[in-house]
Design a protein around this nucleic acid. Sequence first.
RNA 1: GGACGGGUGGGUGAGUGGCUAAAACCAGCAGACUGUAAAUCUGCCGCUCCUUGCGGGCUACGGAGGUUCGAAUCCUCCCCCGUCCA
Length: 380
Amino acid sequence: MGFHFEILATDPTGARLGRLTTPHGVVDTPVFMPVGTAATVKGQTQQDLEELGVQIFLGNTYHLYLRPGHELIHGMGGLHRFMSWPHPILTDSGGFQVFSLSSLRKVSDEGVTFRSHLDGSEHFLTPEKSLEIQIALGADIAMVLDECIEAPSSELRAREAATRTLDWARRSRDYFARCGNRERQMLFGIVQGGVHPALRRENADALVDLDFPGYAIGGLAVGESHEVTCEIASIAASRFPFERPRYLMGVGKPEQIADYVSLGVDMMDCVLPTRSARHGCLFTSEGPLLIRNARHANDSRPIDEKCGCAVCGRYSRAYLRHLYSTGEFLSIILNTHHNLYFYLDMMRRIREAIRFGKLERLRSDLQVRLSKANPSGRRV
RNA sequence: GGACGGGUGGGUGAGUGGCUAAAACCAGCAGACUGUAAAUCUGCCGCUCCUUGCGGGCUACGGAGGUUCGAAUCCUCCCCCGUCCA
């Protein structure tokens, strides 16, 4: 058996400490997965990621299909070999692009027609096609194609997308049963349903009936409040089978991560640490810090005195501000390294807390500290 | 000595009578970013007052005068910079 998920401990909050075994290695959960859309986590080498302790990251079906093409990657021995990442990989299906490229696509029951953001060419992505690509890429975890919609959306609209997503999940499961290999890849189903509790519940139950080895919650953190995100995620997670991994897609901010974990979420991913880093927003134990702010110009302190990362161990805020201001690409590299370390270190502490049944304490602690006056003295 | 060309807000640089506190870009300042069309995007960017309003006052396009209801824009003189001719 190539895959195995075991729950090692639970916490009074509902959080789970787990271990997901894949053909390319073990993933300790709850896990934060950096996003590496184009077969690279922007600004970090694969060696950097290993040193940071990254166990799994996200690639993207849509982007890799457009460039360099899944057939090319398959010919190069699959995504792991192509990018020299011998550890687990999860590929998103292209479902998020239904949302983020909404001006460039058309959705029907059959699939999604995209106009490439690169050259305008048309591409028709169906649940089957998405899986064909993901099978060729060889990711450890593949995702079903889903229809992610914006918030707020009417219940009618949410129902349409959720129903379609459920139908696509069924088609995906059937296609994978025919063309996939359970020993080499896991296929996760995705529940949609907007911010409507009954609809979410209904769709989660129907999705579980399709019997996936793992379940994802999609269509959240797309405009609704954090409270609503938690409410809906909680409802969905509570319908999933206890012993299977749960993946809350596309979250979240540092101060929100522990909230999701306490709802029983095992896996998360987000562009925030990497994108924010490129934009000069650095996460610290006392809240976010905008490194370009003039007040850091003469500051010889590290980004975060409590941080154990290589960047904080070596460089001053003044230097990092200089790199950012001058547009040096080392800025991106160092900032990204720090932010990823911040997320991964937080996850380590979260797992540790679950082990000892103390997540609630860590959670409220994180919430207070990450949202109190940040290092610049401003409330965030 | 003469002939042209030119001097605009921190920088580059538009603007040849009112719609110009003055385009655009850069720099500067601040904010945003949640399954990556993002090393991106947004706001502010002369001073000042308040009843914060597509509000009032003041100052501003090398300098000083002038024409005009109205001038960065037209005229006169002066100063400075560049190129060329003696």
